[in-house]
Amino acid sequence: MAAETLGWWGVPLGILAGTLRGSAPFLFVSLGECLTEKSGKINLGLEGTLLMGAMSAYGISYLSSTQWGISPAIAPWLGVLVAGLAGMVLGFIHAWLSQQPKVNDIAVGIAMIIFGSGLAFYLGKPFIQPQAPRLPTIDLGNLISSSPAIQSALKISPLFILGVLLAPLMSWFFKSTRPGLFIRAVGDSPDAALAMGVSINKVRMLCIIAGSFLAGIGGAYLSLVFPGSWSERISSGQGLMAVALVIFARWNPIQCLWASLFFGGAQSIGPALQAVGIEQGYYIFNAAPYILTLLIMVITCSPKKTLSGAPGALGTISG
């Protein structure tokens, strides 16, 4: 409807709206993964963490507002917090398992995807039908335009703003704090870190748990902001794509932000075109994020050279 009044302008507006709405989960998961990979471990399980976060945020928001008598304004924020905590629990399991001798973190990550999503589906069954209070949005559109199309496009979640602020904060953390430098040292050259008297296991444990906390928040965004309900198909692989996105972003938090916006935008190409009546190739446009992921992998991977910026210890079993 919005697009009808705006005509073809609806397409860029739709993509912009989709970018602002849909990139937050990418952003949180990729920042979490960035933190994890900077310490030299890979956590593929963030897909499971994302689902677990989405389920627990929705469930807590619903239960606390309807059964525990908590105000609907606070309930979703409680959900966000619990989603982060649930992520931390999964993160702890991953960190503990993947640091056992001779354990491969990719294999543990795949197991954690299955475990996290399975647990979320199992516990989330009762929350598919009911309506939980959602997070409020900041209606920027109301300030600049009276057009309902623009108003609905420019609804921005405070969580998204938090994520956008987190990216430069993390970049600064890696550059200008002692813990940040230690994380990079552990991820890049564990031997050097050991020589500095840093406990590699402890640093990685903390990084994986903190990264999973962020991924859990990303899940809360899915169920409490956009699309704003809980179902088993809610993540559609966004957690895994976010892992690829970290490579695309060269392990740089600021570039993680740009890459997340890019992926969020790509995701909304299909719906935006559909809104102006282009039905042909709809599925192909909807597949844009997946095609992009593949393309990025093909372009950036080479058996002969290692990526610049890749933490040196990444993917080594003993390291």
Binding site: R184, A185, A192, A195, P311
Partner: peptide, 19 residues
């Protein structure tokens, strides 16, 4: 030491401060 103990992905300044 015989082997290098600096972190390759960091700048000289970062390595010195971290040491």
């Amino acid at each position: 030491y015989q082997h290098f103990t600096s972190v390759p992905a960091m700048t000289v300044a970062e390595n010195l401060v971290l040491s």
